[in-house]
Design a protein around this nucleic acid. Structure first.
Length: 615
DNA sequence: GAGTTTGAAACT
DNA sequence: CAGTTTCAAACTC
């Protein structure tokens, strides 16, 4: 299939004009000082020779490890029109005139070698980097960079190959779609001779993403990224953890759909046409059913107008029609009546995603066409509570393993609701309880009364089957038990199957992070993303859980960051003095990476300049 | 499907 | 910061 149309040009500047020295990739590599210091690898000799003048870029962080998609954008001004850098599938590469940026998206389904690299103390990573650079430095060009980079990112030759292929194709493409109207999250469909590469891409892109809110790229940036407001770019930092953290219902796939952003913007760049906006779930379902993204692409797009014009009834009908399916797939859709989907009451908004046609909301403003409003509202909320959009449940990979493992009778000690619940009547046995809903036990942070949380009571007792049975019996239904089981099965998952919006819980304006990095944080930029983006802790990978683990780790890092940050007066708590308690790590309870006995690879990665227009 | 319950979010 | 109100999800019937 010919796919010029599927390639979206999000970038404006020709890639070829880029000089290797100006490449963000090189710049990034050149800024891996921490690794150097730790491993004493003289990589700089290879890379330092390159003078990068462009803003430092960030390489894939551990988060990126879980991402399969990487997007690069740099503000390079190329001079070679022949290689005009158009962007290919929006998901892939974006070399824009904007600030240097590397966007990474991940799909945890596919093991990424970066972990191994990391686990070797970064040695492999560095070596790979060095080798690639050396090997290709003679003819440094964009493709070389891409190749080297992608290999580093993907680890897998196949993946990197596919990625490179895509980039090449992109660079050669004459077709651009600045309006992003074609934006689709579907993988590029290629003709047969490139099928292999694209198969790989397919894997890379496996799992379409639901469009997310482009919270921070609104404005000028978005123009570069695609005018369509429907485009989804992960906000500068964010992990949209809510999505991740909350959904206990979702299937595991959800977990793999995070996008991280930060300075490492992970993007969901998606598409834009609202109509193509299938929920992530929809796409995933398709993929799961073997139809793959290709079919998703083939879906007849619906115009925004059409979408918006859908009457509530119609939507409801649709919803009902898809009801079972949606329900079964745990794809939540909001049902807001008064909040206009601009408050945290709205699950979609809280999760950092736009509402979709499946939502039954009324007077919804949480749509691309109201992007500015959404952004403004979001900002406002963040100003009130910087962590408003942060994941509610924090869990470590170990925790996940515990849950998944044989000893599933206990709530992961490290898993907890960030702020704690405040249940009065539900005894923390129903989903009204956020702890319960998140599949975690109550903690000291909770102010619940009569806590009987099956995942662990506030008093410290943990879930036991007997107790659970007792509870079920008392409640006169086994539903609770089923719920518990279900929650356990999905414990690490957030409640929203949607596309995670990578968002920084802390607004970029808040400057929660000190300019200088903390223990494992590199110099942080002004962007809120810094919190995540600098997190570079790597752990032994459990691919099936990687995404969650990563994210959770990151969250913890954030906590630590907050704790350690000189800026300690952050009212992390919600308005009502609800605590956004930072998890207390006993000396005995080490952070995930410590628990794993793994080394914590510290990368001092410069953050990307914030694309956020606000200041 | 309508109504109730619940607790988070928002407001005062 | 505490109390109250609003809201929408969860739940019940």
């Amino acid at each position: 299939m010919d796919t010029p149309e599927k390639c979206i040009t999000q970038i404006g500047t020709p890639i070829s004009k880029l000089k290797v020295e100006d490449s963000p990739v090189f710049n990034f590599i050149n800024n891996l000082s921490p690794i150097k210091s730790i491993q004493s690898i003289p990589i700089t000799q290879t890379l330092s020779s390159l003078n990068f003048t462009s803003p430092p870029s960030v390489f894939t962080s551990p988060h990126a490890v879980s991402h399969k998609e990487t997007r690069f954008r740099s503000e390079n001004n190329s001079s070679d029109p022949s290689k005009d850098a158009s962007t290919c599938n929006k998901e892939v590469v974006s070399i824009g005139e904007e600030k240097t940026l590397i966007q990474t998206r991940v799909d945890c389904k596919t093991p990424i070698v970066v972990n191994d690299v990391v686990d070797n103390g970064g040695m492999n990573l560095l070596k790979m980097c060095e080798d690639n650079v050396k090997a290709k430095s003679e003819t440094p060009d964009w493709e070389t960079l891409i190749s080297a980079t992608t290999e580093l990112i993907y680890g897998s030759p196949n993946q990197s190959e596919a990625f490179s292929c895509l980039l090449k194709r992109t660079s050669n493409s004459e077709t651009r779609f600045r309006d992003g109207t074609l934006s689709t999250m579907e993988p590029i469909v290629s003709n047969t001779d490139e099928s292999e590469s694209f198969d790989a891409l397919s894997n890379v892109y496996r799992g379409g993403r639901r469009r997310c809110l482009d919270f921070e790229i609104a404005g000028k940036n978005k123009q570069t990224l695609g005018e369509s407001s429907s485009r989804c770019v992960v906000p500068s930092i964010g992990l949209h953890l809510n999505a991740i953290a909350m959904s206990s219902k979702e299937d595991v796939n959800v977990g793999s759909e995070y996008s991280f952003s930060g300075n490492i913007k992970v993007g969901l760049q998606s598409s834009s046409t609202a109509p193509l906006l299938h929920s992530q779930h929809d796409i995933m379902r398709e993929n799961e059913t073997g139809k793959g993204a290709v079919q998703a692409v083939e879906k007849v797009p619906m115009s925004l107008e059409e979408m918006n014009s859908i009457s509530p009834k119609k939507k409801k009908r649709k919803s009902e029609k898809a009801g079972g399916e949606a329900e079964s797939s745990s794809c939540k859709r909001c049902n807001c009546k008064k909040s206009k989907c601009l408050k945290l009451y709205c699950e979609c908004f809280a999760a950092g995603v736009y509402c979709i046609e499946g939502c039954l909301c009324i007077d919804c403003f949480n749509k691309p066409i109201h992007e500015e409003t959404v952004l403004a509202t979001r900002k406002q909320i963040e100003s009130r509570n910087p962590l408003a959009f942060a994941p509610k449940v924090i869990r470590s990979s170990d925790s996940i393993m515990e849950v998944v493992g044989d000893d599933a009778s206990k709530t992961p000690a490290s898993a907890r609701h960030k702020r704690g619940c405040n249940c009065k009547k539900s005894n923390c046995l129903k989903k009204y309880c956020e702890c319960y809903q998140g599949g975690v036990g109550c903690s000291i942070n909770c102010r619940c009364e009569g806590c009987k949380n099956a995942f662990g009571r506030k008093d410290g007792s943990s879930f036991e089957q007997d107790e659970e049975n007792e509870t079920s019996i008392k409640s006169g239904t086994a539903k609770t038990q089923q719920n518990v089981v279900e929650l356990f099965n999905h414990a690490p998952l957030p409640s929203t199957p949607r596309q995670p919006l990578a968002q920084l819980p802390i607004s970029s304006n808040n400057s929660l992070l000190p300019p200088q990095s903390h223990y494992h944080h590199g110099a942080s930029g002004s962007s809120s993303s810094g919190l995540y983006n600098n997190s570079q802790s790597f752990r032994q990978p459990d691919m099936s859980l990687l995404s969650h683990s990563r994210i959770e780790t990151i969250i913890e890092d954030i906590d630590e960051n907050l704790i350690q940050s000189p800026i300690t007066n952050i009212k992390a708590g919600s308005p009502n003095s609800k605590r956004v308690s930072l998890p207390h790590h006993d000396s005995s309870e080490s952070t995930p990476w410590r628990r794993n006995g793994g080394r914590k690879l510290i990368l001092s990665i410069p953050t990307f300049p914030s694309l956020t227009p606000h200041h």
